[in-house]
Computed example of a mutant assay.
Amino acid sequence: MSQLIIYTDLDGTLLDHHTYAADSALPTLAKLKQWRVPCVWNTSKTYAELRVLRQRLHHQDPFIVENGAAVYLPKSQFQEPFCGARVSDEFYAKSFGPSRQHILEVLQEFKDSYEFRSFYEMDAETVAELTGLSKTDAALAKQREFTEPLVWEDSPAALKQFTAELNDTGLQILRGGRFLHVMGQFNKATAMQWLTDLYAERYGETPVCMALGDSHNDIAMLNAADIPVVVRSPSHLPPSLERKERILTKKFGPEGWAEAVEQVLASQQSLNAPSMRS
């Protein structure tokens, strides 16, 4: 068996949809760290949000922000920079799409034709009301670099037309658990595959990818994974995948997340596979 890598959505998956807590998953997260199974966060959240959340949950692995817009690699784990890397004090970063500023300029051209509100137009208090985040965390959610969430206030027919016109500009709309996300032509699978290839070079073999998510913006990631897991949500029906082989959890959110990960770890352990590297 090959090395196992776990890619996971956060909101509604590893984090509870209502409280954003991960308490039910903490013992399993500790086991992954003990067995040195990378747990890569693949989320719509921003770099600013994850800097805080990583400290709270003691996360040390790479992470992917804004629905696949960029991968951040800790320098402590990846010593050599790669072609096209942006470098900060702690991370190398690889981006896959245009800047948020470009997206905002494109959206401005549509303001007279369609009714919508973007994160950029909202203050932190409004974002907090829409998301259930604290005002402090909502301010971090507004610090976007590559994508722009929208609240759609027009008709479904108008949304269909808007989507088509937006595609002509090189942008797309991806539906998340709460918002429409305007972004470049990438998704969570784009970043996942790029990082998996990087891990393959490190291990000398192609890793087995397990992916967990709960909503529409996770579909590409789940379809591309070797072990796709749909985590049940209390707020919406499970997304439909192209493939029939997938795990559907019995429990919601972080409880369902832990349920599925423990199931896969147990199967790996029963095979006595060298996939949990020491």
Results as ranks from 00 to 15, higher is better:
Q108V: 02
Y20G: 13
D16C: 12
H216N: 13
E242A: 12
E153D: 09
A164S: 09
G177F: 00
V229T: 10
V65Q: 03
P156F: 01
E245S: 06
M276Q: 13
E105M: 07
E49K: 08
G256N: 08
D168S: 15
S275M: 07
I173P: 04
D197F: 03
E255F: 05
D218Y: 07
P74K: 09
T131G: 04
K135H: 07
P239A: 15
V127E: 04
L140N: 14
D226M: 09
T136W: 05
A158L: 02
S76F: 02
R277H: 05
D154W: 00
K251R: 12
S155A: 05
W194T: 07
S44F: 00
L198G: 10
P274C: 05
V87H: 06
D168K: 11
L265Y: 01
N272H: 13
I247T: 06
N67P: 14
H58L: 08
R100M: 03
Q172L: 13
K142N: 04
E205R: 07
L73E: 12
Q161F: 00
L271G: 03
R51F: 05
V65R: 01
Q268K: 05
P228F: 08
V87C: 13
G170Q: 07
L248V: 11
Q77L: 15
A164N: 05
L4G: 09
S275H: 04
M276P: 06
L32V: 12
D16T: 06
R36S: 14
P234Q: 10
P156L: 02
L50K: 00
K250F: 02
A21P: 01
Q101K: 06
T147Y: 00
T196P: 12
T163N: 07
A93F: 04
T169D: 02
K160A: 11
H216Q: 14
N272M: 11
V264L: 10
V71R: 09
S99M: 04
Y120N: 04
L166S: 04
Q60I: 09
Q172I: 10
L4E: 06
I6Q: 07
V182I: 11
N187V: 11
G132C: 11
T163P: 01
T206G: 10
P27W: 12
L271E: 06
N223G: 14
T206F: 10
T19D: 14
M122P: 15
G204H: 12
L57T: 09
V40C: 09
R246Y: 08
D9S: 09
L53T: 05
C209V: 12
G12M: 14
E121W: 01
Q60T: 12
G170V: 03
G213H: 05
E165P: 01
W152P: 03
E165R: 11
G176W: 01
R86M: 14
I227W: 13
V231Y: 11
L195K: 03
T163W: 01
V127I: 15
D112W: 02
A139H: 15
A25R: 04
S267K: 12
A189S: 15
M221N: 08
Q172C: 14
V52R: 11
Y114G: 02
Y114D: 01
G256E: 08
L198N: 12
D214E: 11
S233E: 07
R56V: 10
G68P: 14
K251L: 06
L241K: 03
Q101Y: 02
R117L: 03
T46D: 13
G256C: 03
V230H: 04
R175T: 03
S235G: 10
K251A: 06
D61I: 02
S24M: 14
